[in-house]
């Protein structure tokens, strides 16, 4: 599957944290042709394994990009058939107003997120951002029919078509972190024509948005020698954040307490050798990514982090450059090609 087509289908697919099963067939269809083995585990993590050509026992690399998306969950169906919801992950309620959604009940229903209209708000209310409790979902059904079709606990996703903008940019929901999952495909495809000594575990992890949960258990289960997490980072313009990344200038290589310096050095060296553009991301403490969880699985797993620059994170119009996705995959593949026993043994500090 072509990488952009994969990202389009991922972005338009449905996989709220804990409910990622709707994406599994698609991920399998895309990744399995480039992997000897493909499996899913108890938490729904999808693992594509490419065995390396090194001697047994081979070293192993885990590549982790999370497949889950932030979403909503129905908490209540009111006496007129309107739905109330809670967050799964972190939306700013202000970006939810007037969004079209899909309510995943017994069947999928179109819905609209509404709030009190402006002419009914008091001046005081108008000055305040709406809270999630002020919002509701209209599914256009009377209460009886709503209750037959929708239950408390059903998930709700934003309804947003993947949109191609000018200049190779793409916009849509949940590019955080499906852009990372698309980079896994790009990486695996390139690994077909690269010799790699290490076993490669390409993992589309689950429940990242609610606490790095899939990465926690899959890192325990796979027990790799080292790992690279692939996630997104904030990109400008207009951010007023020193060090914010830019679209189209390549993946950002992270540095910080969570990142093994030798792995970062290798990523930088590989990028320089292959002429892959990169940017830098400084994450002093918690990276807020799967890297944070993988790093302390079992007796400790050396971890690096690559980030794909993204504008408007956690909205339904997250925007990224396809070239960054491709370069991320390329860098990962070339990196995987350099992993061997000597590298792994060098990761333990004196």
């Amino acid at each position: 599957m072509e990488t952009k087509e994969f990202l389009r289908r991922l972005s338009e697919g449905v996989g709220v944290s804990g409910y990622e099963h709707g994406l599994h067939d698609l991920i399998r269809e895309a990744l399995a042709p480039y992997a000897g083995e493909f499996s899913t585990d108890a938490l729904g993590n999808c693992v594509a394994v490419r065995r390396g050509c090194g001697e047994e026992p081979r070293v192993s690399v885990m590549l982790a990009a999370h497949q889950d998306e932030i979403g909503l969950m129905v908490t209540k169906i009111d006496e007129r058939g309107f739905l109330r919801v809670a967050q799964v992950g972190g939306f700013d309620p202000r970006v939810l107003v007037a969004q079209e959604v899909v309510v995943h009940g017994r069947r999928s229903l179109p819905g609209i997120i509404g709030m009190k209209p402006p002419h009914i708000l008091t001046d005081e209310e108008r000055k305040k951002a709406p809270k999630l409790e002020d919002l509701f979902i209209d599914i256009g059904l009377p209460a009886g029919e709503a209750r037959e079709t929708v239950q408390v606990g059903d998930v709700v996703t934003l309804n947003r078509a993947f949109t191609e903008l000018h200049g190779g940019l793409v916009a849509g929901k949940s590019l955080d972190d499906r852009a990372g999952v698309a980079a896994l495909l790009e990486c695996l495809r390139r690994l077909q024509s690269l010799r790699h000594a290490a076993d490669i575990y390409a993992v589309a992890t689950t429940q990242e948005e609610v606490g790095l949960r899939g990465a926690t258990t899959s890192a325990y289960g796979l027990h790799p020698d080292l790992a690279v997490a692939i996630d997104v980072c904030h990109a400008g313009p207009g951010l007023d954040e020193p060090g914010a990344s830019e679209l189209g200038k390549g993946p950002a290589v992270a540095v910080g307490a969570n990142i093994h310096p030798k792995l970062r050095d290798l990523l930088l060296a590989v990028a320089a050798d292959c002429g892959i553009p990169i940017q830098h991301e400084v994450s002093p403490g918690a990276t807020g990514t799967d890297a944070w969880a993988i790093n302390i699985a079992r007796a400790g797993i050396p971890t690096a982090l690559l980030s794909i620059p993204l504008r408007y994170m956690h909205t339904s119009v997250e925007t990224a450059a396809m070239s960054d996705v491709v370069q991320t995959g390329r860098l990962l593949a070339e990196f995987c090609g350099r992993v061997d026993r000597a590298l792994v043994e060098g990761l333990r500090w004196n």
Partner: peptide, 24 residues
């Protein structure tokens, strides 16, 4: 306004709280 649970309506089967999403 968003809570559904009531006393006397039976056992609550959890779908989600802040600490987890129960597997479907």
């Amino acid at each position: 306004s968003i809570l559904n649970m009531e006393l006397g309506k039976g056992a609550c089967i959890k779908a989600k709280d802040a600490s987890l999403v129960v597997p479907p």
